[in-house]
Design a protein around this nucleic acid. Structure first.
Lengths: 112, 112
DNA sequence: TTAATTAACTCTATATTGCAGAGTTTATAG
DNA sequence: CTATAAACTCTGCAATATAGAGTTAATTAA
């Protein structure tokens, strides 16, 4: 059965990676604001992504407050790519911009 | 930012619900085999889906071994529908059957 | 030039969730 | 009627997620 990278298949991390993919390099604070998440929680999830080399960090200081810039690595983008494909195979999303129930052939609903 | 139903956004439960959506009513053992998961783990996740009324169960006995048939409820299908749409908004998947990197405008990659 | 303030992180303890295997029940076979 | 096996279910351990307290570093203002 279709595997879903557990590192990516978690609400906050999916959002994180999707956001980095779409918006490019972001500071810790940017991410914190965008995802409305606590410092500690963001830190913990970033650490996991860093440990997996899905995300890289570049630190700056000297010309202002110290800042960390987080960015998706090529591996991270590749993993996201694979993840999205796995989702597409698992969930019949193809061509369903507006409904998708028709995309689930053979289903039977509980009649309650 | 885009919300992802935490009940569905978990590897095993996503697979479970996707499978039920695609294949209709399934027994406990069918699910166990298809998802290659331990009894206890399957039971735990089914309980959560039952508690949320995403899945319903019908029990049979008397004419063979006792069996439970699990099935997606209308609420479950609706939740899955919402979930897929949230993913589609979060991840720019549209029309990317074969690459998708182009689907992430504005991204910048770490050069390592 | 140095003490106060504030922003940017990071660490740690607690809560929540996930998992596997042992246990229980129910049915068929000998 | 005892043994075997399939179909679940329960319980304790392990891993993960979260929040908030703590730490470091830089600007501001006396």
């Amino acid at each position: 059965m279709e595997e879903l990278d557990p590192l990516l298949h978690q609400p906050l991390r999916t959002q994180l990676v999707a956001f980095l993919a779409g918006a490019g390099e972001q500071t810790f604070s940017d991410l914190k604001r965008q995802l409305a998440v606590s410092d500690g929680n963001l830190d913990a999830h970033l650490k996991k992504l860093l440990a997996a080399d899905y995300v890289a960090v570049r630190k700056e200081s000297g010309n202002g407050r110290p800042q960390s810039f987080f960015i998706l690595t090529p591996q991270g983008l590749a993993a996201l790519n694979d993840y999205v494909r796995a989702l597409q195979r698992l969930l019949p999303l193809a061509g369903s911009g507006d409904g998708l129930p028709e995309g689930f052939p053979g289903r039977t609903l509980a009649t309650d």
